[in-house]
Design a protein around this nucleic acid. Structure first.
Lengths: 231, 231
DNA sequence: AATCTCTGCCTCAATCCTGCCGCGATCCTG
DNA sequence: CAGGATCGCGGCAGGATTGAGGCAGAGATT
């Protein structure tokens, strides 16, 4: 069930350390240290995504990408050195799905991998979906920034919308305050936990203004919040 | 319950001020001022996350990271000076989870710490699994923090949930109070044995409120408890 | 410039959780 | 069977967590 990634780089350090990191994230990783080896390996063990260093001896990344593209539409992410931007242009025009300049953080790499895999369509885009959410009486349309409860429009601010969206995306699933913070602001912002409570309070208040029995946002003491699905 | 962080920096000012800030946030912080000391300390007091300065006398951050990686997959955040980008490349491709360039805001540091811990925590769940447990009439879904008996929802607190999960994970197997304590709190906490009894009492009571014949949690005199599987 | 809105956070009171104690009942061991 | 160990249960008090109101600053709007 684990997604298999192919990692190609001639620098042994990068190869092993990045592989370790990815495996820690639950991916299976096949490592190759040059293009020819990678090409051969990919025939036998196809991967969901390939991560290629551009500069490699014997067969460089762009050439490898070309060969891969002859046989498969497998998503590809390029690794490039920071200073040679030419490579980026080259790689992308050749059909890479994304690129990352060294140095890169593990966080960035993971984000790109997830994004590319998501775009590639295999996985359910649960986290970032822009789709309308219709959970019983609740309707959330991100594109129109529209929220309604039992037909009545409920005016939410951006933050409130994002939080409710995160909750309603997986009805019944518990979200910690940290997770909600991620959903509304992203990784790099730290706020008081209790700020989430404040927003939840405001969301509840707005919904109760339309339906004073509204109780779909449940508090789980010591854990977080969840959106209760229809019974 | 407090998460322990390891902070390694040769600058005493940074060491103490950052440590203070982190402690104010509720973390336990072990501080070390060089790599060797840190390595020794980490053996005895393992931390959930290490924050390493890259430039240090005797053993620098990357070297320390290497040594740490030989023994553990502990998440690591690097601190780097803004001007030497080389360090970043080196550290990150070596397997650090993230990096922060000095000077950094406390807010960013906290955000990164949380993000890394979250990722790490999700990956390596302390106990056995995050899967739903379905044992006959019992249903335990950690993601939803949902517990039901014969279809009825039974509302459990976090501690109760963890204990029941530990028991139900291996139906028929005896769990000592110590083992249950580990499952619910981790192995860093000492509590009165009888406290487990109290929780078991409350779990039983809650289940009996739905089914007064409930007797699946069996007491093994002098040993512990076990969850009785279906006959 | 004068509002208005959004938002993060603070305070206070109410509620919930939990560790532990004591008592009586039960269970083993010799 | 007696004595001691162990356990179930009620209850309590402190601590942790949460809901609600409110406030001030930053931006946006008028």
């Amino acid at each position: 069930m684990a997604t298999r990634l192919a990692l190609v780089d001639d620098d042994q350090n990068i190869l092993t350390s990045v592989a370790l990191a990815l495996e820690a994230e639950g991916y299976e990783v096949d490592t190759y240290f040059d293009g020819e080896q990678a090409l051969a390996g990919l025939m036998r063990r196809p991967a969901a995504l390939a991560i290629l260093d551009i500069k490699m001896p014997r067969m460089d990344g762009t050439e490898l990408l070309g060969k891969i593209r002859q046989k498969s539409a497998m998503p590809v992410i390029f690794l490039t050195s920071k200073d040679d931007e030419l490579d980026e242009a080259l790689g992308l025009s050749l059909g890479a799905d994304d690129y990352i300049t060294k140095p890169f953080s593990q966080r960035l790499l993971l984000a790109r991998i997830r994004a590319v895999l998501r775009r590639a369509g295999g996985q359910a885009p649960l986290s970032e979906s822009n789709d309308t959410i219709a959970q019983g009486d609740l309707l959330l349309d991100p594109d129109r920034h529209l929220c309604s409860w039992k037909g009545d429009e409920v005016k939410l601010t951006v933050t409130e919308f994002l939080l409710l969206q995160a909750l309603a995306l997986r009805p019944g699933h518990v979200k910690s305050r940290d997770q909600l913070m991620d959903a509304a602001y992203g990784d790099d912002i730290f706020l008081e936990d209790r700020t989430i409570d404040s927003h939840i309070k405001r969301i509840r208040r707005k919904f109760r203004a339309h339906d004073n029995l509204f109780d779909r946002i449940e508090t789980l003491y010591g854990i977080g919040y969840k959106y209760k699905p229809d019974a």
